[in-house]
């Protein structure tokens, strides 16, 4: 007679916040939601599911991916591009896959043609500022998106979390750009004189205007992202040591940038049947439970910790995603045999 082991999933001790993303759905002021985490933890699945749930309660939702690997197209089995495209089967959900460095390239190339030699040099100077390409990538997105009037935008961030690097130097970036613009303000007339003497046609004032607008955009981007009413970040993790460690690092980093984070998704959890014979599942389950307990201990009081199961099939295609998305709101409970 085989032993009947009951696999009871760990629960947080004491009072805890509801283990679902209902609070995100209910917070209507949210405009920017980032979903991130390292290493194949299920970011795209989570961001798509969240977008689907949001679409039920909001006027219009835009899902953006900045990952060059085209994961949104795979998830919905539909081709998405640089322009927002409606997702099949939904009335108010659109998706967009952009490459921020590409949009930067376009901007640089477009500007180069009219600025001339000197302008190119100043532009190189401006782009040497750390984090500026990510900032400009976001600025492009914001510009694009503002004109389209979406109620909420869900960002599926790139696996390295690289996209948020520019938020680590907001003041440095602003200071550098403001110094550059004061410099340009002082030397602008002189440069114009010199260039006119030498016979060159450098339109410095236009270039300086561009720098100013860059600075204004970066400031606006920073202000929006630091406002907890407008922006939040949802880290996704799996119940393993490295993922937990990375999540802790990510949360500390986000807190230092003053970005709100109050939900965590723990994905790919095992829920073995009580009459299972799989030794591997049992061992894996106990490992996961160990780290899950640590996560509850560390984050239980301040974060909504949402548990998502590892299903037997891949979560791909609109139907699976719809089913999966329900579990963000109504926590998964394994069917009893």
């Amino acid at each position: 007679m085989s032993e009947q082991q009951v696999f009871v999933c760990a629960e947080p001790e004491g009072d805890c916040l509801p283990p679902n993303l209902e609070n995100i759905i209910q917070q209507e002021s949210l405009k920017w939601i980032f979903v991130g985490g390292k290493g194949g933890v299920g970011k795209t699945t989570t961001s798509c599911s969240l977008a689907i749930q949001l679409a039920k309660h909001r006027e219009s939702v835009l899902l953006i991916s900045t990952d060059p690997a085209h994961n949104l197209s795979d998830a919905f089995s539909q081709k998405f591009g640089k322009e927002a495209t409606k997702v099949n089967g939904f009335t108010n959900l659109s998706a967009m896959e952009i490459d921020p460095s590409a949009s930067m390239q376009d901007m640089v190339e477009g500007a180069d043609s009219d600025a001339g030699g000197m302008g190119g040099m100043m532009q190189d100077l401006a782009f040497a500022i750390p984090g500026i390409d990510e900032a400009m990538g976001f600025a492009e997105v914001m510009k694009h998106v503002k004109s389209m009037q979406f109620s909420v935008i869900v960002f599926d961030t790139a696996p390295t979390g690289h996209t948020l690097r520019f938020l680590s130097f907001p003041t440095v970036l602003e200071k550098a750009l403001s110094k550059l613009s004061t410099l340009s303000g002082r030397f602008g007339p002189m440069l114009n004189q010199v260039s006119s003497m030498m016979g060159g046609g450098v339109n410095t004032s236009e270039m300086f205007e561009k720098l100013e607008s860059m600075r204004a955009v970066v400031t606006e981007v920073n202000t929006q992202f630091k406002n907890p009413d407008l922006t939040t970040f949802i880290p996704v993790m799996i119940s393993e040591f490295l993922s937990l460690y990375e999540t802790e690092r990510l949360i500390q980093e986000l807190t230092s940038y003053e970005i709100d984070v109050h939900c965590i998704c723990v994905n790919q959890l095992l829920f073995p049947d009580s009459d299972t014979n799989c030794k591997h599942c049992k061992v894996r389950w106990s490992q996961q439970q160990r780290y899950l307990k640590e996560a509850y201990d560390l984050y239980g009081e301040d974060f909504h910790i949402v548990k998502m199961p590892l299903l037997s099939e891949e979560v791909r295609g609109p139907d699976s995603l719809k089913k999966f998305s329900e579990m963000l709101i109504h926590p998964y409970s394994p069917t009893k045999p």
């Binding site: 040591f241 937990l244 460690y245 802790e248 500390q252 780290y291 640590e294 996560a295 201990d297 560390l298």
Partner: peptide, 17 residues
């Protein structure tokens, strides 16, 4: 040990930082 007592380790680390 960061692997066995992660939450305690993380709390100490936060205080240290």
């Amino acid at each position: 040990s960061s692997q066995d007592e992660f939450s305690k380790w993380a709390r100490i680390r936060r205080k240290l930082d």
